[in-house]
Amino acid sequence: MIEAKGLTKVYGEKTAVGGVSFTVQAGRVTGFLGPNGAGKSTTMRMIMGLDAPTSGSVTVNGEPFAQHKAPLREIGALLDAKAVHTSRTAYNHLLAMAATHSIPKSRVREVIEMTGLGDVAKKKVKGFSLGMGQRLGIAAALLGDPQTIILDEPVNGLDPEGVVWVRNLVKYLASEGRTVFLSSHLMSEMALTADHLIVIGRGRIIADAPIAEIITGKGHARTRVRTDQPERLMQLLAGTGVSVEVHERELLEVSGLDPRGIARAALDNQVMLYELTPLQASLEEAYMELTKDEVEYHSHITTGASVPAQAGGK
């Protein structure tokens, strides 16, 4: 379990992470989603004790990372596929890391096989593709058979087969009861891999919820409706919280009212519908919706400061 409380990192005048609090639970894959530069990597480096927080704290399995007696056996991390001296072979890199915790050579060979690096293990990392570098980073993270696994952008540069492999691996690790914390800026990947999502933007947590909840969150569920009397239907549906988009002459998209409500209104008023399809928002759309709020929130603060009388106005 990872627990962050008011975690803040300020570089000079730039706030990279602004007081984030979240909990990453064991037994499920938690995705850490945000655009590049949102503060994902900084947060992960603070979890690993590499960067000291400006304020706030973060613990892993109840203790700050540096307090653990055997860190590699508690937490394995892929923070950067290039956290390797590239003139060393993959095997020797893992061997040197394993030596710090007396992890046997057999385990080194095991993670090499597990990550599919068998053929290149005795080659210098210099010649590795980005994908092989990622596999080596994942091998290093798994070395100590840790309870908690942190992976920063693990599918970057992986081929499609590698992407599926990472997806299955993290799901398997979570199913064993481990804590898996995975960052990505690829929403489609998160939709397929994560059970729970923490969304970060501009150093703030925008959402922290099960992935299904984020996708079907309030205001995101829409219904596609085809009718030969679109104007009439629009009049009927007009009301608080309902919005209607006209896509074609007879094709509408309704949000704010469920399909049953739409059908009821149509039936009561003798309007014929010839399609009524509930639409699920994609994670992309849900994410855009979330970050749009974040942007509006910021601009509201600035206008609010200069025009205080606006409060209460509509």
Binding site: L72, R73, R88, T89, L95, A96, H101, S102
Partner: peptide, 22 residues
């Protein structure tokens, strides 16, 4: 949870790093 980074293990690790660089 097994052994952690006691100094002799870190020393061994650094010696491995030292001798595995051309």
């Amino acid at each position: 949870v097994g052994p952690g980074p006691a100094f002799h293990r870190v020393l061994n690790s650094e010696f491995i790093k030292f001798r595995t660089l051309m």
